[in-house]
Computed example of a mutant assay.
Amino acid sequence: MKLQHHLGGIENLGPVDLDTRVFAEPWERRIFGIHTTMMAESAHLAHASPAYPIHALPTKFKSDWTWASLRTGAEDMQPFEYFKYRYYEKWLSGIAQFFVDAGYISAEELELGSAFYYSHPDAALPDRPSPPLAAQVSAYLKQGDSCYHAPGGAPRFNAGDKVRIADPEAVDHTRLPGYLRNKTGIVDLVYPGRFSYFVSTGVDGIGEPMPVYRIAFDAVDVWGAGKSEPNTTLYADLYEAYVRAAS
């Protein structure tokens, strides 16, 4: 699997940054705003819950853009490049590559624009969005969109069941932490209803709506006795596609 899917427990990755600021630099706010605006204009919202008037928005953006899009773009980076950049630099890389790949801007235009603002950091930024777009972004920030679906059929497992986590084929984007693959835990909670995801992960297993479980792991079983504090429990929310009956 990709290295960035398996960070838990890996040694010698360098010191841990304990900075608690959400935005360490002013430009990071702008990247978060761009991503949020793209999600608020995403074409998939026409069929999301709640539904939004996407087709009436005065925008040239006609693509799907979700958290899955952002994460896939970041996780598709070469592993050593992934570790080299800051959190929002990964966001910027994924967003910029998406706009080039989708044909909204050429690589040359991106390079020229970047060079201009690098040389003129105080230059005026593009105009603010029109009132309908601003209202859409505000509504999306308040309401979001949900991957929740009503219950349908009984879940395979119940609270208290001993389960083993699957080890599916590696894909570009997964919701399964690599350090939990093949580990054994106990179902702590079965969340009501079923849940889908923004995209299908293919052979990784997430597609149609399915139950999600909160599973408890003894830290010693995950990290080993030498790297775990005693009496420590790790909890993970996992899609049913990743859960197997323990043998």
Rank of each mutant, 00 (worst) to 15 (best):
H44A: 10
D145Y: 15
G178K: 01
A166P: 00
I34P: 04
L18A: 06
A166D: 07
P151F: 07
V203A: 15
H47G: 10
F83M: 13
T174W: 06
N231G: 09
T59S: 08
H5R: 03
K227L: 06
R194T: 03
D76P: 01
K90T: 09
V212W: 07
K84R: 15
Q136W: 08
R86N: 07
D221F: 11
R244M: 15
F61T: 08
G94A: 14
P209F: 10
P131M: 04
G160E: 07
A166T: 03
E25Q: 11
D122E: 14
S49T: 14
G185T: 00
E41Y: 14
S146G: 10
P53H: 11
E169R: 06
H44V: 12
K162N: 03
D167F: 03
A246N: 13
I54H: 12
I54M: 11
F116N: 05
K84F: 04
E75R: 07
V163A: 05
Y213C: 08
Y87R: 14
E28T: 08
Y88P: 02
Q78N: 13
L92N: 14
A115Q: 09
W27V: 09
L112W: 05
I206T: 05
T66P: 00
G153K: 15
V222I: 12
F217V: 06
Y85C: 09
Y82E: 00
P15Y: 02
A107T: 06
S138I: 05
A170F: 01
Q78A: 13
E89K: 07
E108I: 04
V187I: 00
T232Q: 13
P155I: 13
R164F: 00
F61I: 01
V212Q: 14
D76N: 04
T36F: 13
H55R: 15
Y87D: 11
G14I: 02
E108N: 02
D101G: 04
Y117E: 08
W67N: 09
G8K: 01
P192E: 13
H44C: 10
G103M: 08
A102R: 13
S138Q: 14
L125Q: 12
A96D: 06
P151N: 12
D76I: 02
K183I: 00
R214D: 10
A123Y: 11
S119I: 04
H44E: 13
F99Q: 14
F116V: 01
P126S: 15
T184K: 04
S49M: 11
H5D: 03
Y148D: 01
Y140P: 03
T174G: 03
A159K: 06
D127F: 06
Y88K: 11
A124P: 10
P209I: 06
M77N: 05
V203P: 10
K62V: 00
S63T: 04
R214S: 09
E108T: 05
I54E: 14
